[in-house]
């Protein structure tokens, strides 16, 4: 968070969802249940960097991404985009302008493409929606450029195909081309490779690195896969139950994590053909949904090193080193490297 001019900056952002329980419970008994999907998050994304948001399902990583793109309403806090607060902005005109700068890539390439549209229709739809004054020939040119960048070559062969004629990897490339045709400065990519085979995954990942290096785009990469986060990002933020519990350079995944939860996550990673470097820390139970938040640290009940204070006092999100932030009372390495044990 050393960067003075981040493209996106989240300040104490909260996103809550109401659980509908029916008229009587909600309005007469006043028993409202609220999911704290994102709870007081602080995060800066610098220009031209890839930040990975890592967490298990239900940790609030997708909601965070959607909140930045104004696809989910924030309950509290402020989101700054390009030096300007975008919290609560809603008008159509603003939206149209905003979408030229910020785009999203969705997880499932099988469901995010309209089956009745040709690739050309899909890729140029953003132009139509933002009232671009390009004529048909220009649109075709732009679509071809975008598709070629996304690795569908020769693009002319793909322009008038339908999604069902494409493989999963090709579909995700179409999604990326659709996002790229606006040349956005900021992209939220929500698990873009989780549906793809390992053998095609790499080329899609390279596109993201290309977007960053050649086009200077900033990317929020949402993933549950720590090794992918390590591979492509500059910084990682690990989320647990709506909170960022640890933020730091991507290298911390290879053994520099200090939050017990991040250490547990990294300790269970298995590398093909490598001996384990860390003792496996297997947490009991599963992440519960953040409905009734405990008083203290929300990880305390599963934490292997929790102490009395953890159950009483909510830890603050604080710097612990240069470029390294943590949300824990007692950050310490727990699964030491051990050479004797396999």
């Amino acid at each position: 968070m050393a960067d003075k001019d981040p493209i996106v900056s989240l300040k104490d952002v909260e996103v809550n969802f109401n659980i509908r329980q029916g008229f009587i419970k909600e309005y007469i008994l006043r028993d409202k249940k609220i999911v704290h999907a994102v709870d007081k998050i602080n995060l800066d994304i610098a220009r031209g960097e890839i930040v990975s948001l890592v967490g298990e399902s239900g940790s609030g990583k997708t909601t965070t991404g959607r909140a930045i793109l104004r696809l989910a309403d924030t309950t509290a806090g402020d989101i700054i985009f390009n030096g300007e607060s975008i919290t609560g902005k809603k008008s159509k005109a603003w939206n149209r302008e905003f979408r030229k700068h910020a785009q999203m890539i969705f997880q499932d390439p099988y469901q995010s493409l309209n089956p009745r549209f040709t690739v050309f229709d899909i890729v140029t739809e953003p132009l139509t929606l933002t009232n671009s004054d390009a004529n048909l020939a220009e649109k075709e040119m732009l679509a071809i450029q975008a598709l070629e960048f996304a690795g569908l070559r020769p693009a002319v062969d793909y322009l008038y195909r339908y999604p069902h004629e494409l493989s999963g990897g090709q579909r995700q490339r179409v999604s990326i081309a659709t996002c790229f045709i606006m040349a956005p400065e900021f992209i939220v990519a929500d698990e873009p490779v989780s549906m793809l085979d390992a053998s095609v995954r790499a080329n899609i990942l390279k596109l993201f690195v290309g977007l960053k290096e050649e086009k200077g785009a900033s990317i929020l990469f949402i993933t549950h896969d720590l090794s992918l986060a390590w591979l492509i990002s500059d910084h990682v933020a690990i989320m647990y139950m709506g909170r960022i519990v640890e933020y730091g350079p991507a290298d911390i995944i290879a053994g520099g994590c200090l939050h017990p939860y991040s250490q547990a996550l990294t300790s269970v990673l298995a590398m093909v053909g490598e001996k384990r470097r860390m003792k496996r820390i297997i947490l009991e139970g599963e992440t519960s949904s953040p409905v009734n938040l405990p008083k203290g640290c929300r990880f305390a009940s599963r934490c292997p090193i929790a102490q009395q204070r953890c159950f009483e006092e909510d830890p603050e999100y604080r710097p612990i080193g240069e470029d390294h932030y943590i949300c824990c009372h007692f950050p310490q390495p727990i699964g030491q490297l051990n050479d004797e044990e396999d």
Binding site: V200, R201, S227, L231
Partner: peptide
């Protein structure tokens, strides 16, 4: 190729390789 399509966090950070073609 399949083994090298998975990142290895204990090695220097190099981009994983795809297997070309289908």
């Amino acid at each position: 190729k399949l083994i090298h399509a998975f990142p290895n966090i204990y090695q220097p950070r190099v981009m994983v390789e795809s297997i070309p073609g289908d």
